[in-house]
Design a binder for these strands. Sequence first.
RNA 1: GGGCCAUUAGCUCAGUGGUAGAGCAGGUGACUUUUAAUCACUUGGUCGGGGGUUCGAAUCCCUCAUGGCUCACCA
Length: 511
Amino acid sequence: MSNWQPNALESRRIEKMEALRAAGMDPFPLRAERTHTAQQAIHLLEKSEADLNDGDTLPDMKVTVTGRIVSFRDKGKIVFAHIEDESGRIQLFVRLNNLGQESYELFKKQLDLGDFVQATGLIFRTRMGEPSVNVTTWKILSKALSPLPVAKEQEVDGEVVRYSAFSDVEERYRQRYADLAVNREVRDVFRARAKMMTAIRQFFDSNDFLEVETPVLQPIYGGAAARPFSTHHNQLKQELFLRISFELYLKRLLVGGYERVYEIGRDFRNEGVSFKHNPEFTQLEFYAAYWDYYDVMDFTERMIAHTAETVTGSSTIVFGDHTINLAPPWTRMTLREAIKKYAEIDYVEYPDAAELATAIKKIGGQASPSASWGKLVDGLLGDYVEPNLIQPAFITEYPRDISPFAKKIPNDPAHVERFEFFIGGMEMGNAFTELNDPLDQEQRFLDLQTLYKADEDLNNPIDDDYLRAMRYGMPPNGGFGMGIDRLIMLLADKSTIREVLLYPHLREKIE
RNA sequence: GGGCCAUUAGCUCAGUGGUAGAGCAGGUGACUUUUAAUCACUUGGUCGGGGGUUCGAAUCCCUCAUGGCUCACCA
């Protein structure tokens, strides 16, 4: 049983639906016909006008268009209505003389904003010059029983100005279908997103990468420090986790002989929600044999610039108040330099966590007494450096104790070959010269257990199967991970991740 | 999880202790080239839920829910 009780507006629409039925018109017919999209119909008119010689008259151009009624102006014996399909809007010119009393009255009285209709007639221009369909026959394709929050709009200098738009963010996300139906620019965001995905795949494919798919349900989660969602398989009586990263499964494939692999898919992290965090998000990871993290940097710059050009037409983008130039080369700076520059602490002078914490407090910063040295350095990065990294920047050479999958820098026991890259003040991704020494890797896992001994969820169990794979020999390789949602935030100039997810996670609402 | 703010008609919003409002949408009517069409009349509300203070609460207090911003957390 549904909970729906029609309100006054909906009851009225149900009456209209019955009236259509009584007049012999099925309000939800099986089939529809269309000869032209709205855009094609308009182009047809424009082209034949352009081809016209002086003194000639336009030929008759009959079109059948379909779409949702988005405006309705009843002028007595003429109705002007716009319908919208995915290609755009076109005006219907509906006149009593051209339809006859019965059909005209039905159109005028029993249709509502939001209904889908099909209309046939000659395409022409009204006196005001707007391309329109002079409707001679029409039928309803779907009766909208609930009123959409359709807003009036006006085009001023090519810009759509909307009045009283459906803008309540909570309702827009809870009823994304209504948001998409009435806010055309929201539809554009997800078209841009699809275009971005295609551009990324093309770039990888043209660089000899193989796209693969690895398990979402994993008996041992790993590859990142995050709390997982857990579930279980009934029949196998097996505890399972939704993946928090693809890392360990992808690198096993290098052992298997693939040299360049990538995966685009969903990761799940049981953490807080924010303007740049959603519990499930789309991750891109790649691994390339015989690359180091400098190769990965070169590739990353080119990939992001190429993607931006494909999606927006330019490698220079506008994000909020900033204009960002994504064209290579990007700034490269070690983490030590960056922290020296923005926090004015040279952390190598404080090789002990307690000393570093004191130094951080001295500049007014936050330092948890339980934090490890690496965590403190990372804290400085997040608090002092990250907000300043508006133009794209690689920050390189990270503390070893927070980077369990990266290779050590020779003669520098504290640092590893790892970079993160930042754009628009956001961390976009993370990459390493990947550790391929199985004995070192085992030690790193053991060190992690000490680091996270207080937090069982972060202290994921050692993945023995992954170590076994490494012992068979893993080629040296460079690896990379990036939050795709954040990239489309940049390219579509959206300040929250929810605007680039069709169905962002929301708390359950009890109606 | 903490702090601050918000929640009023289908939509967008006014209303800060004294009879719940506007615009749009809806309804009725007028108008045969309109376009935020226009004009006249008009329907519509458990003011997010619950509790309290008060002669009287949309308004003040408490609480719960949801959302936003923010802080914390998220290698």
